[in-house]
Amino acid sequence: MDPFVVLVLCLSCLLLLSIWRQSSGRGKLPPGPTPLPVIGNILQIDIKDVSKSLTNLSKIYGPVFTLYFGLERMVVLHGYEVVKEALIDLGEEFSGRGHFPLAERANRGFGIVFSNGKRWKEIRRFSLMTLRNFGMGKRSIEDRVQEEARCLVEELRKTKASPCDPTFILGCAPCNVICSIIFQKRFDYKDQQFLNLMEKLNENIRIVSTPWIQICNNFPTIIDYFPGTHNKLLKNLAFMESDILEKVKEHQESMDINNPRDFIDCFLIKMEKEKQNQQSEFTIENLVITAADLLGAGTETTSTTLRYALLLLLKHPEVTAKVQEEIERVIGRNRSPCMQDRGHMPYTDAVVHEVQRYIDLIPTSLPHAVTCDVKFRNYLIPKGTTILTSLTSVLHDNKEFPNPEMFDPRHFLDEGGNFKKSNYFMPFSAGKRICVGEGLARMELFLFLTFILQNFNLKSLIDPKDLDTTPVVNGFASVPPFYQLCFIPV
């Protein structure tokens, strides 16, 4: 058959498939802009700032609406009420993970971030239990974070109060905490193996944040037939998995079943207990991918939040002064901060919360999916439909947070200066898919920041009023603009 005829037939089939998918069930789905064949609503979305586009569309179609990214149908949730109703009140029905062709290629359905069903539930339950087990290797997770915080302070001392970009050092600290939990080992910041790991993690975040990856996920045929950065992403992930597998083999040879040292040991012990169960989800494949998931999810998000926190503290020296006064009063100079201190430091706690609220790190979270046909607000959402959640619409709700575009710790303080919780605080998402490392991340943010401010004054290279804190939105995360500062020993 003539190649031209084959091409026309293929394009015609794709067009018909697109029209059929977009028209099927439209009477039951939430409203939304009319999609174009094949490309859907992509032309109506700013790929570099999806969150802003969703906010604009919500003003037209309401808090629940339908979009098509290519052939992929998505239902968008915008605003606290619908997000709570879906992710919390109907948590089980909305607990699936959205379709990610690239991740599915890399992870093969294993791990904790992109798995679904029984596998996801069992691996998540085990990971939560293990991360909360403060007795691994007779050292609590808090001990590990405190140790890394001391190392971080010593690295900052080496800058000798000269101007520096904190990106690298602030990236090393949370990565080392995860390494300590998974591998029972922290690395020197100049260790070549550690630097290679950091390089792969950072490069992957840069790649994932590009519009090209959005295109690959919406048109998965590209993955096999086109060159691009997605190939580098898959190569980096394969490198990390190979490295983790080597460490798993080392653990198998040296493990003491009665004295687990780290996450890998705990997983291997669980595998041993379930070795007679042919349906067990505790396999080497799941261990390797879960460890890679924890490394990827637990490094860049925390380091970016820390980097943004220091920029905001530079911009608002009056806030920094209040935090340091609270540190001096509650902790002093002669001991290290600990998590028990947080309950006695409402202002510092409010500042950490406000940093996370203000920066809105992951504006749309990772997409969910419905696990069955769901009736939601008089609409029928078919099983498997991807759910896109606007966390921006919750964290920047102007009824809950007056002047949401302003950095103001009073958003989390009552009139008496006591810490005030808010149900709208969802930087880790909400419901059954809430970030498994939430507790660890909150511990790291509090301890790293208090250790830094206990030991250093922060000095800006320019007038604080002239510092730009506008986030650089890159399609996946909101990151701070480049800046330098000086760490002046107190």
Rank of each mutant, 00 (worst) to 15 (best):
L295T: 04
L268H: 02
T130D: 04
V64S: 03
V330C: 11
Y358D: 00
K235S: 13
S12W: 14
G437I: 03
E405D: 15
D243K: 15
G62M: 00
I387R: 00
K160W: 09
R206C: 08
G96Q: 09
I462P: 09
E154N: 14
K52N: 15
L312A: 04
P211Y: 09
P63L: 01
N196T: 14
C435F: 02
T66W: 01
R105M: 07
N56H: 15
I359A: 12
L29Q: 08
V490Q: 15
F428T: 02
L445D: 02
G98Q: 13
Q340E: 15
N423L: 14
L14M: 10
L57M: 13
L67T: 06
F69H: 08
V113W: 05
I331G: 01
E85Q: 09
E93K: 08
S280G: 09
Q279E: 11
R144A: 13
E154A: 14
D341P: 00
V6T: 15
G228Y: 08
E155V: 09
E326Y: 02
F428D: 02
S336G: 09
F482D: 14
E72N: 10
P63C: 08
K118L: 11
G79V: 00
I359T: 09
G228A: 05
P31E: 05
K383I: 05
L295R: 02
L234A: 07
T66Y: 02
R139G: 12
Q193E: 13
T290E: 03
T299M: 08
G135S: 14
P464E: 12
K118M: 10
T290S: 10
S24R: 12
G40E: 01
L16D: 04
D188M: 09
D265S: 03
P37M: 02
L294N: 00
L87N: 03
K273E: 14
G298R: 01
D408K: 04
D165A: 04
L306V: 08
T371M: 09
N286I: 02
D143L: 08
H344W: 11
K432E: 13
A309S: 10
D262P: 01
V248G: 01
R307W: 04
N176L: 01
N56E: 14
K399N: 15
E300A: 12
L447I: 15
K322W: 05
L306R: 00
A321R: 14
H78A: 09
P260C: 06
C172Y: 15
K459T: 08
N196C: 14
A173M: 04
H344Q: 13
Q22T: 12
L14S: 07
A173R: 00
D143E: 10
A369I: 07
D466G: 12
D349Q: 13
K420M: 03
Y61R: 01
R261E: 05
S303E: 04
D49G: 08
L90M: 15
K59Q: 09
D243H: 15
R307F: 04
A321D: 13
R105T: 07
N378T: 10
P471K: 15
N116F: 04
I39D: 02
L447D: 04
V352G: 02
F376W: 08
D373Q: 07
E354G: 00
F446K: 03
E93Y: 13
E300D: 10
L87S: 03
E405L: 13
L440T: 08
P166S: 06
C266S: 11
M443R: 13
K200T: 14
P317S: 08
N133C: 11
T348F: 04
H353K: 03
R144H: 10
H396L: 06
K190L: 11
P317V: 07
R105C: 05
P31I: 08
S12Y: 08
F65N: 03
K322Y: 07
M240N: 02
E405G: 14
H230A: 09
V472Q: 11
D349M: 10
H396N: 15
P227V: 08
M406W: 12
F239S: 14
A430V: 12
Q252E: 10
C151H: 12
E253C: 12
L395W: 02
D143M: 09
T301D: 04
I45Y: 08
E246V: 13
A86N: 02
G91F: 09
I182V: 11
R119G: 09
I169L: 15
L294V: 07
P37L: 02
G137W: 10
F94N: 02
I362E: 05
P404Q: 06
V83I: 14
L311N: 04
Q146I: 15
K235V: 07
E272K: 15
D414S: 09
L287P: 00
S429A: 08
V351A: 06
D414Y: 07
P220S: 13
D373M: 04
Q146P: 02
V319Y: 09
P166E: 01
C338V: 13
M198G: 04
R186P: 04
Y308L: 05
F94I: 03
C164L: 12
R206D: 09
F219L: 11
S280I: 05
T305G: 02
K375F: 08
V330E: 13
D373N: 09
L312F: 05
D265V: 01
K190V: 10
L391N: 00
E281K: 08
L71H: 15
V145M: 08
A106V: 11
I244Q: 02
G298K: 01
R186W: 07
I362V: 10
I244P: 01
F412D: 00
E328Y: 10
R261W: 03
A369S: 12
R132V: 10
C164Y: 08
H353S: 08
F183A: 07
Q276L: 11
A161H: 09
G109E: 06
I327Q: 00
V330I: 10
I207R: 05
L391Q: 01
D89C: 08
K273I: 09
N423Y: 10
G137I: 11
D293Y: 04
F69I: 11
A297H: 08
G228L: 06
A321K: 13
T66D: 00
N418Q: 14
C266P: 00
Y483I: 06
T55W: 05
M255C: 12
D373L: 02
K432D: 14
L366S: 03
N258K: 15
L467G: 04
N474D: 11
L87A: 03
G384R: 06
G27T: 11
Q252W: 06
L233C: 05
N56M: 13
D188K: 11
D243R: 14
N133K: 09
E154C: 07
K28Q: 12
R342P: 07
L380P: 03
F110T: 06
T301P: 14
L77F: 11
E325A: 14
L485K: 00
S115E: 03
L131Q: 03
K118V: 12
K28T: 12
P363I: 02
T299C: 11
L380F: 15
E72S: 09
L295E: 01
C435S: 01
H78S: 13
E203C: 07
L313I: 05
K118G: 10
F187V: 04
K200E: 07
